[in-house]
Design a protein around this nucleic acid. Structure first.
Length: 220
DNA sequence: TGCCAGGAAATCC
DNA sequence: GGATTTCATGGC
C-alpha cells in the first residue's frame, strides 16, 4: 500500500486541476443566500426556476410580507416547497432580528453563528457551513456527500457521517484564506460530478505520494 | 419508468 | 450514534 499524500495536497491538486470556481458570488447576495436553501436535494435547474419566480420580489421586506401560500407557489419548482418556504421565512426573520444587515454579524464568533443557523428550520450542517463560508466569509471545511465519498474512495478512511470528515479537515480549512476554503468545497463537488458523469474516472493523480518538499512543508 | 439531485427532520432501534 | 423514511419537482 503506497503512502497517501496529506489531505491538503489532494485539495491543492483539485484546485489546480479545476481552477477557481467562484461559487455563490453573484451580483445579488440575497439570491445567493436563498439559493443555498433552494438547491437542497434538487438540481440547479429546478432551483433556478424558483429563483426566477422570486426575482420580482427579491428583497427581504417583500419576501417577508408575502403570504405563505403565495411564496410557496413561487418556490414550488424547487421541490420540498413547504419546507423551503418555511426555511426561507425563518432565515429572513432571524436576519432581520439580528439587525438586518450583514455588517451586524461581522464580530460574531463562527461557532455562535453556526449554532444559531442550525437552530433554524431547514438548515442542517451542510447548509449552515455553506452559508458561513459564502455569506459570512468564514473559512471551514464542508463535509458533504461528495467530499465524504472522495476521501473514502481515496482511502483516507470510511467517512459515513458529516461530522467525521468535517472534524478531521476543518482545522486545516480554518486557517487558509476564505477564497481557498470556498474553492476547496467547489472543486470537490465539481470533481464529484465529473466522477459521476464519466465512469472509471482516473484518480491516481490525487493518490500519488506527495513530493518531499510538500511533506517537509507540512511538518514545519 | 424509476432513479436521483450541491438535505433536513422525524422516527426507529 | 447509525440506519430508514418522508418530503416534491423535473430531467434523463
Amino acid at each position: 500500500m503506497s503512502t497517501l499524500p496529506p489531505p491538503r495536497v489532494v485539495l491543492e491538486r483539485l484546485l489546480k486541476h479545476y481552477g477557481p470556481q467562484h461559487w455563490w458570488v453573484h451580483s445579488n447576495r440575497l439570491e445567493d443566500w436563498l439559493s443555498m436553501i433552494l438547491i437542497q436535494q434538487t438540481t440547479s435547474q429546478n432551483a433556478d426556476r424558483a429563483l426566477v419566480n422570486l426575482r420580482p420580489v427579491m428583497t427581504v421586506q417583500q419576501l417577508l410580507a408575502m403570504p405563505t401560500k403565495e411564496l410557496e407557489e413561487l418556490i414550488r419548482p424547487a421541490g420540498f416547497f413547504h419546507a423551503k418556504t418555511k426555511a426561507i421565512q425563518a432565515l429572513l426573520n432571524w436576519y432581520v432580528d439580528r439587525g438586518g444587515h450583514l455588517a451586524a454579524f461581522a464580530d460574531r464568533p463562527t461557532e455562535t453563528l453556526r449554532s444559531e443557523l442550525l437552530g433554524l428550520p431547514g438548515i442542517g450542517e451542510e447548509t449552515a457551513d455553506v452559508m458561513l463560508m459564502y455569506i459570512f466569509n468564514r473559512p471551514l471545511f464542508v463535509g458533504d456527500a461528495y467530499a465524504r465519498r472522495l476521501f473514502t474512495r481515496l482511502g483516507y478512511g470510511d467517512f459515513k457521517t458529516y461530522d467525521s470528515l468535517r472534524d478531521w479537515l476543518n482545522p486545516l480549512a480554518a486557517h487558509v484564506p476564505i477564497q481557498t476554503a470556498q474553492d476547496w468545497h467547489a472543486v470537490i463537488d465539481e470533481h464529484g460530478k465529473a466522477f459521476r458523469r464519466e465512469k472509471a474516472l482516473d484518480e491516481d493523480w490525487l493518490r500519488a505520494p506527495a513530493p518531499a518538499a510538500s511533506i517537509k512543508n507540512d511538518l514545519s
